[in-house]
Structure formats: structure tokens, C-alpha cells
Nucleic acid binder design. Structure first.
Lengths: 149, 149
DNA sequence: CTGTATCCTCGTTGATACTG
DNA sequence: CAGTATCAACGAGGATACAG
């Protein structure tokens, strides 16, 4: 009997020890997202993925593919020929996640202008409040009200 | 003029240097996903989030919230009272992403059994092929065919 | 309560070289 | 071509202490 505190429901990503967090981290990992999205438009070979997902090293691509294969998201088919030929594709389950993460990735692309605008505003406000503080300028009242306890 | 190779489209997550990758990494970051999901059901204080997202340290929660605020996903409202009281909520843009990552998180929870089953199969096959190799057992033909070139 | 600052550790990542 | 092995470096992340 280990569970001192009872979680609301068993698979709970908010729970520090719930295994579902591991899955979430696999599919949202730096390269996992991009590999899943890349496989959404069909079977690809190792080197094709390597070119498509720009910036990934051989090591990380191999590692990512193994993790996704083990979780049942990616199907690996090695053709025993020389030189080696290995095809990677999505399982039905993998297509499910892939659609979600690909959608997220596309959302990030389209939201880029909006986000960069938000960053400008944030940075400007930050700079303004810093220089104001440095000058001892009052600025908008940042006075602290006291409450009991 | 820096772009030697012309990308297909400007905001492209597959491009190593595209800023959209940064956004993707922010929203899919270890704690970013959970914080966004947690804020989906309304405004929360710092300590509430800390308790809700179990396992996050103060440092990482603060850092995550700052990143998400700068990107325009999270709204921070500090009430100038003692003791300090700060409310975090989602912006309209933030709600968009939050819905997507929360959906992904829920998917991971419900898919947990399926994934664990897949892992068992994978590990069993791995163990079987290893012991077969160690024994020099033939097993299913893994012979290599030669192709020209 | 809500942070920031510091230090420190550990895992992830990348470069390189090598194997089947 | 498709990896694996090894090593080095960096950065995320955690613990602690302290400030507003």
C-alpha cells in the first residue's frame, strides 16, 4: 500500500507519478512532435526524415523513433537488403496523436506574427518599468495596500 | 541577405531556424503543457498552480509563466497588497493553444492502457530476439538479400 | 505569498567515429 | 544506408536562501 494520497482519477497528468505524463512527454518532445507530424503524410525512410526534420541529429532521430515505436505510435519495417532500407510509418494510434500535434505545429506557424507582436509589447513594458525604476520616476501608482493578516 | 536556401514557406516548423519552433517548444514544454491546461478552467493563483501541477518547482513555474506571458498566452495580474496576490489566466490566444494541449493531455490519459500494452509487446519481442541471437537460434529468417549498387 | 538569486547536478543533446 | 558507441558540452531543472 503505497498511495498515501488518493488521486481523483488514476490516469492523471497532473499527478507527479502518473505514467501518462511519460507519454505526454514523448509525444511533445522536441523531435517527437516534428517526427510524428512528418510521418502524417505517409511512410518515410530514416534519411528522408533526417532531411525533413531539419536540425535533428542521427542519434536523436534514432532515439526518438525508438521511443515512438515502443509506445506503439510508429511502425518500423526493416527490409533486409544491402544497403539497408528501413521504412517508418504511423500506426492507427500514432495517426491520432500525429494529427493533434501536427495541428498544434500548424497553429504555431500561423500564430507567429501574433506572438511576436505580444513579445514586443511585453519587452517594451519591461524596459519602460525598468528605466522608470532606475530614475525613481513615480509612474502609474504601484503603491502597496496593506491588508490584515 | 542571409537566406542561401529558400524555405518553402516562411513560418515553417521543419526549418531549423524558423521562430515558430520556439513557440512550439514553449507550449509543448514539460510544464508549459500542464500550466496551460490547468488555466483552462479559470483564473488561478501562483500557489494554486503549484499545487495543481504536481512536481513543478517554484523556479520552473515562475519561469514557465513568464515565458507564456511574454508570448501572449497568459495574463498576469498582480494585486498590490500584502501579502502579495497574483492571478494568472489565459488570454484569448492562450485559450486556443490551451484547448489543444489539454486535449492532447487527455488523449494521453485515455490511451495509457493501449500504450502500455504496446510497450509490453515491444519489450517482449526485443527480449526474444536478443536471447535468440545469443543462442545462435535461426528464428524467423533475417537473411540479407543483395541488391545491385 | 510571490517571487528572485545562487549554486549545483544530472540529463539531453550534438560531434565524431565506427559497425552491419 | 541505417544505425550504435563514446565523449564532451550545454542547459534544464532542483534545492536553498533570501527579498519585497
Amino acid at each position: 500500500m503505497e498511495a498515501i494520497i488518493g488521486p481523483g482519477k488514476c490516469p492523471d497528468v497532473y499527478d507527479r507519478n502518473c505514467p501518462s505524463r511519460g507519454i505526454l512527454e514523448h509525444v511533445t518532445s522536441r523531435w517527437g512532435v516534428l517526427v510524428l507530424a512528418a510521418l502524417l503524410d505517409g511512410t518515410h525512410r530514416f534519411s528522408e526524415l533526417r532531411r525533413r526534420v531539419m536540425g535533428v541529429s542521427e542519434k536523436m532521430l534514432a532515439q526518438t523513433l525508438q521511443t515512438l515505436e515502443r509506445d506503439g505510435f510508429v511502425l518500423r519495417e526493416a527490409h533486409p537488403v544491402i544497403p539497408p532500407h528501413v521504412d517508418y510509418s504511423l500506426t492507427p494510434t500514432g495517426e491520432d496523436v500525429a494529427r493533434q500535434v501536427a495541428s498544434l505545429a500548424r497553429w504555431c506557424e500561423t500564430s507567429l506574427p501574433r506572438v511576436e507582436a505580444a513579445r514586443s509589447v511585453y519587452d517594451a513594458q519591461k524596459a519602460a518599468s525598468h528605466s522608470a525604476a532606475a530614475l525613481g520616476s513615480p509612474g502609474p501608482d504601484t503603491g502597496t495596500a496593506r491588508v490584515r493578516q
